[in-house]
Design a protein around this nucleic acid. Structure first.
Lengths: 162, 162
DNA sequence: TCTTATAATGTTATATTATAACATATTAAT
DNA sequence: ATTAATATGTTATAATATAACATTATAAGA
């Protein structure tokens, strides 16, 4: 089963999803007894408002502009760490950049399609992939804890643009 | 079809594979009209001699000791870039570290199982995974060019050690 | 063989990404 | 109010990576 795969490549869906994502983040923090502070919310919004993964220092710059004061790296990294811990944001490690997670953590494949042209990312959730990975890990007697799948290429709109 | 998945977790296989890998690298360079220079060979050996992924600066340190002279970062990064271009070495981006590729590039899934305890890496080649990714990309009309799959967990020997 | 072109390496400097360590402030619990 | 816990501010620096240019080695053409 492949779900939600067009989410991030389609701007309209993404706009809607930001609002939903903030609500989701709020209730998740509530449930986990975590504090969704103003700073964390700002960083969350900055990352979610962008259709492309942002580097920590880009977030820092935007945050600095939004708050009209200088921001130091640990401020950003700490907020990102917090958000990643809750599965609200993920790092695309090949890019050293961060992007919002459209899926609740329980159903996440950590599977990303990254367009080399427009840099936008689609997160995909696929039980087939997940099961196949489980099966391979089983054969290796490898106890898998976390997976990260990054596919680079060209998305449909960048292909048709040419 | 799942192939070669025990390669890197098993020390004996790895030792054998180094010799084979050097021969493979030599003939590949020959075929591609590329120069397998002393420096590149050294870096290749350093990366292949280790069962765990090495950071560029670790390679730098080892290289420096082996050659008894100081080595600057670009020296290492350039050699690594060269080796990656030929598919002889891969970067594990979550670790900012490099490891030898046991597969010829044509058959590579870029699929790594990374043990959090011993840090060793098994590269897996799975046509099921590759096909499933192709199928998902197809549904998204995404022209995929490169994939990188990183699974973190605990390997069998670290599990039984406890 | 000499000369030129190309490829590879050396070198310096600096950019980019990330974290450690400690100070201060805010919030929640007693 | 006081203490404890959590979050943020601040300074400094570690770790990773690349740009730009100089030099050397190798290969190719005259």
């Amino acid at each position: 089963m492949l779900t939600n795969y067009s989410l991030v490549f389609q701007e309209s869906n993404r706009q809607k999803s930001i609002v939903a994502a903030i609500k989701h983040a709020e209730s998740l923090c509530m449930a986990e007894n975590q504090n969704f502070t103003a700073l964390r919310r700002l960083v969350f919004e900055i990352i979610w408002e962008n259709s492309v993964p942002l580097g920590a220092y880009e977030v820092k710059g935007i945050l600095s502009r939004k708050t009209n004061k200088s921001v130091d790296p640990p401020t950003v990294y700490r907020a990102i760490e917090f958000l990643m811990g809750l599965g609200l944001v993920t790092k695309i490690s090949s890019l050293n950049a961060f992007i919002g997670c459209p899926f609740p953590s329980s159903t996440r494949s950590n599977f990303f399609m990254i367009c080399n042209e427009c840099k936008r990312v689609a997160e995909v959730s696929s039980s087939e992939i997940d099961n196949e990975i489980k099966s391979i890990a089983g054969k290796l007697s490898f106890a898998s804890e976390r997976q990260q799948i990054e596919i680079f290429g060209t998305c449909i709109s960048c292909k048709t643009d040419k």
